[in-house]
Structure formats: structure tokens, C-alpha cells
Design a protein around this nucleic acid. Structure first.
Lengths: 330, 330
DNA sequence: AAACAGGTTGAAACCGATTTCAGGTGGAGG
DNA sequence: CCTCCACCTGAAATCGGTTTCAACCTGTTT
């Protein structure tokens, strides 16, 4: 690899001048500029980003910490983040934490040591902040609030509204006996969705019934079994997310229930598979792409010294597909 | 952020000594060593990885280039790579290329400028190598051969065997009219699987019938429609991968066909969703995790100057689930 | 013709690590 | 007691960029 000094020598100028030509940071005599450009072209010179980042204290790297990249929701977020980062000439350093707090901490440290420009974090680790050493890198929290971490921005969807809409929809589809497989109450997403469910039940005078369920498929399987034995006359299930909804569907299928004839089913998130599945799932749409894009933009803006909005609540909407059935007579 | 000079000053030693303590690269007087460790602990000093990487010409970063992270197959590969990289104290820089050659080239360049230790690439770009500038970073190619690129290792599954097994299985399940939705013939995966299908057809004297189909869901929908109109008495479909199999299933469902009663269906890859789907898909298992792990190990070994194996063919196997039905009378 | 403003330029310092190399110390051996 | 060797140690060079700063050149003003 040819260095800036080598280019300078060949072009008969100083490294400083080469730097100025490359970065356009100052005027350079057109003749010298041309000489430099010729040599750059001949040698295929590309500045070493490490050296640059070392001096500038910015590596144009954004760290992305997700609990599980195989989880479609995070996969889709990661994709949106990567895309937007690329557009802005940033690169993505990915950490798949598997709920391993130690791994998250180590990755945060690495990002710090790499002069990263920002960290977008989605995590399950509640007490991450307390265990974390000093960190220069600005944080953006996506989807799940972390106590004690002073992030530059927080981005989430309106889970409460989503919870309300989902429950109300089941109601309008004729369900009398709605059971909520509520998500982890340590997350605001879990809390707010459940609160939405609760409030609708209260407003319509419905019986409140629920079970706790983590956000993953295997848990969904287990809890759905439990649900059927505990609430035998259930006719509507509000799953905490799409993966759990799919798990519930499979359990219902194996027990001989029909969806939506016997039992109706609502998911949450609108991951891509919720539409690919057979039947296609009615669910609450979180604007996943927009959220990921914004997370990245916030970091870019912050790096540029632009003002940013700290709290960002994204609107949600409902899509009715094949697992619920809107009764015509409302 | 405190620097090594700061630590050295506080501990009353030189930066060289601090470096030696941190890295254990030379003996240091136990007393001084202790002083250094105390200061390191007090200040929370962590060496700047950029400075280190600049000097060492190795940033402990592995680039991962995938065509589409939302595609479960690549998502699962990425996960395995990240996991193994973490175990070896490497980090992952992710590029989701969306089949955009320019984006791939730019990311390769960036990785080069970052003194990355290796690039694991899965791409659709055929003529990537010819457009690529000089690159110091060693490549490992996963899943899809790239002509003209001199990689340090190539890793793929035994697609030919998989193609044979899948076809033979459909045959044993009583299919008389197997249609192959073959994958892109520019990839060895597409070629080899199709070759397996062809050879089994020849050996059993079967009629050969196929359509071309890209590896994605939307294509699967389109081609499956075409398949039904072109081959009305099909009773077995060999999809080029699991996503296409799912698409085919949905088309069959919408046309009123029953799977596996009317038409049997084989996928390929064994992505997680092939088992989560309803019905669960019979498919060919690629050892995704093992392949990703090996790709990473190869790079680590190469960085350590250890010998590595260039060509790596992974065995595949067949899992019979609900979309095929093994007839008892063989 | 001298003074001054404005624009280019390169030497050198800097970012924060690692490693080389030469000098200093202490103990063993003659 | 002197020599030699082994072992620590720190000054300085290095990695490859960027930026500061002072010097220089050109052309204009008085």
C-alpha cells in the first residue's frame, strides 16, 4: 500500500499538499493539484482510514447492538440502519449479543476504543448502564428503554396505541374471550402493549386474562399450550409479537383448532414473515424501516453538530389479514 | 480518554513499559508492573485500537458481505460468523450489498483502508474481481464461487448431493411428475443442485422438466404460477430454496391444491423458518452454522500464519417433514 | 521603491499506540 | 577486582494520515 508521503514524493510536493488536494481542505495551485491527481490515479492511492480516524477522532463507524440478528424484527432494523449508514458514508459494526450483557459491554468498549461515532443499541440487559465504564460514544436507544444510560435519542413505536388497536380489532371481529400473551414487563414495549389491552378491556367491560411470554418462538409454543389448558373457551389471542403469534398458531393447529373460525389471532410488529406465513397474520405495523433510518440519521446529525430530537415516538397501524375476521355487523 | 503516555507519567515509567505490561510482550520489574496495573485500574485505561491497528497493520476486524441480511439463510450465516469472531476477539463489519456491486466494491475498499484481517463474502456479483482494485485483505468465499478472485478459502455445501437426495426423496414419495424450480445457473449452487436433479431423472428414466427461478420469495410466487399453467399434472416440486418453496406453497394453497396430498414439495437450505412454517417443510439441511464458523476460523488461522485448507465441501442431509410423504411401499 | 495584503506551501507537531536499540544495572565467573 | 552476560528500561522511530504555523511569493497601494 502506497502512503501519502510516497505520493507526495512522486508528485514533487509535500504530504500536506496531497492531503489538501484529497480532502479539498484548502486551495492548491492548479498545476500541483493536477500532478497530485495524476499520481493518485497511477498509484491507486487510498488514504488509510485508521490513520485518519486516529487523528480526527472519528472512524465513521456506527456500532449496532442487537439481541438476536436471526430475529426478523432486528434483522429488518439492522438492514435499514446499514442502508442509511451506507448512504451517509458510515460503516456498521455489528454485535449480536444473544442477551449476553458481558458481550455487549465488551463490544461497547471496543467501539469506544475504535473512536466509533455512535452506537445504536437494542438490548434486553436492564442494568447495562451501571456496569458500563466511561464511554465517549453517543448512544441511540431503539425500541427498548435502558435505565441509567444517557442516550442522545430514544426511538420507539407507539406500543400503547398498538395494544389498544389490536384488542379493539379482535373485539370488533366478534371475540368475547380475549387472552393476552403479554410480553416481558421489564420492557416498555411489553408494558405499553399490555396497558393498551387493559384499557380497552376496561372501556368495553371485558374480562381481563393474560399469561406472560417472552418474545421468542419457543416460549410462544410453551405458553400457547398453557393458554389452551388454562382458558379453554378462548376465542381471541393477542400475541406479544409475530413470532409468538406463529408459535400460537402452530399449537392451535396441532390441537385441531381453526384460525380464524374457532380462535382469532393478532400478531405485533409486522415482520416480513407475518405476511409470508400461511395464513397471513393480522398484525400491528411498526414502521421498522423508518425507525432504523432515523436512528442512523440521529447519529450522523449529532456527529455534524446538528440539533437532534431526543424522544421519537412512531405511529403504528393495523393490518387485517387472514387470522382475524371482521364481522360485517360490526 | 487517557492515553498510554498519561498512564506512564502517573506510574512513573515510560510508555514502552506500560505497553509491555499491557501486552505481556516482555518482562517487567514486578514492582513497576504493579504500579502500572494500579494506574491502569484507577484510570480505566484502555488502549486505543486505532493506534494499535495502525501500527500492527491489523485491526481485528472481519468484513462480512452478504447479498441480503433479511434473507434468513444469510442471517443465520452472519450470526454464526459473528459468534465465532467474538470468541476469537475479532469484530464484524457488516455490508448488506443488495446485489449492488458498487456498494460491495466500496465496502471492500473501506475494509482495505481499515487494515481489516479478512473478508467473508457471499455475493451475486459475477464480475466483482475484475472491477476490484488491489486489495491486501484475504478473502474467504462462502456459498458462491466468484471467478477471478484469488480467495484463501472457498466454502460450500455439497449442492450436487443435495439435489440428488431431494429428487430421489420425491421419487420415493411416489411422485411421477417432478418439476424443478432451478436456481440461477450462474451460481454453482444453482448448477449443482440442478445437476443432481438431472442425474436422478436420468438414472430413473424420469421426464426432465424445469423453470428458472431466482432465490427469492417474490420470484417464487411468479414462477410457481407459471409452473402450474405449464405443467398442469405436476405432483412434485423441487424448489431451489426454502423461501421459494414457501412461495410455491402459498400459490398452491391459493389455487386449492393440497400439500402433500396433491403435490409434494421440497425446499433447500433448512433455514429456521422451514421448520416454523405450517406445514413444516421437508428440505435439505445445509450446515449453516458450521459453514459460518469455519469461514471465520480460516481467517483467524490465516492471520496467525497457520496453514489452512482451501477447498471445503460440507456434507448435506435430508429432513423429511410435512410437505412430502414417504409411501410405505417404497 | 517600500510596505502590505492575500494566497500557497512545506516542515514539523500531533493523534496513540508498538518496537527497536542502545545504555544501565546487577550478578556470576575468572 | 575486572570482565562478561543477561536482563530491564526508556528515548526515539514508526505506522499514515491531518493540521498548524511560519515563510515565501505575487501583486497592489502609497
Amino acid at each position: 500500500m502506497v502512503s501519502i508521503r510516497e505520493v507526495a514524493k512522486r508528485a514533487g510536493v509535500s504530504p500536506a499538499t496531497v492531503s489538501r488536494v484529497i480532502n479539498g481542505t484548502a486551495n492548491v495551485d492548479p498545476i500541483k493539484r493536477e500532478q497530485v491527481l495524476v499520481v493518485v490515479d497511477e498509484t491507486g492511492y487510498k488514504p488509510n482510514e485508521l490513520a485518519r480516524a486516529l487523528f480526527k477522532k472519528s472512524s465513521k463507524i456506527i456500532g449496532v447492538i442487537v439481541p438476536n440478528i436471526e430475529n426478523a424484527f432486528f434483522g429488518e432494523l439492522a438492514r435499514a440502519i446499514e442502508e442509511e449508514a451506507y448512504q451517509n458514508n458510515y460503516r456498521i459494526l455489528l454485535c449480536n449479543s444473544q442477551n449476553n450483557t458481558e458481550k455487549e459491554l465488551l463490544n461497547i468498549q471496543t467501539l469506544n476504543q475504535l473512536n466509533a461515532d455512535g452506537i445504536i443499541i437494542m438490548t434486553n440487559s436492564e442494568n447495562l448502564a451501571s456496569q458500563m465504564g466511561p464511554c465517549q460514544v453517543p448512544f441511540v436507544i431503539l425500541d427498548r428503554k435502558i435505565e441509567g444510560l444517557d442516550e442522545i435519542a430514544f426511538i420507539e413505536a407507539d406500543h400503547y396505541k398498538g395494544g389498544r388497536m389490536a384488542t379493539e380489532h379482535l373485539l370488533q371481529c366478534g371475540c368475547k374471550n380475549i387472552v393476552c400473551m403479554r410480553g416481558p414487563q421489564k420492557f416498555s414495549s411489553g408494558q405499553q402493549r399490555f396497558l393498551g389491552y387493559l384499557d380497552i378491556c376496561k372501556e368495553y367491560g371485558l374480562k381481563v386474562q393474560w399469561l406472560d411470554c417472552d418474545y421468542d418462538y419457543e416460549e410462544g409454543l410453551r405458553v400457547a399450550e398453557e393458554l389452551l389448558s388454562e382458558f379453554p373457551d378462548v376465542d381471541g389471542i393477542l400475541a406479544c409479537n409475530d413470532m409468538v403469534a406463529i408459535a400460537a398458531y402452530k399449537v392451535l393447529l396441532s390441537k385441531g383448532f381453526h384460525v380464524p373460525e374457532d380462535i382469532q389471532l393478532m400478531g405485533f410488529d409486522n415482520i416480513r414473515f407475518s405476511k409470508l406465513f400461511a395464513p397471513e397474520f393480522s398484525t400491528i405495523i411498526q414502521p421498522i424501516k423508518e425507525m432504523g433510518t432515523l436512528a442512523t440519521q440521529v447519529i450522523v446529525q449529532y456527529a455534524n453538530g446538528e440539533p437532534i430530537q431526543k424522544e421519537n415516538l412512531f405511529d403504528v397501524s393495523l393490518v387485517e389479514r387472514q387470522t382475524t375476521r371482521h364481522t360485517k355487523e360490526k
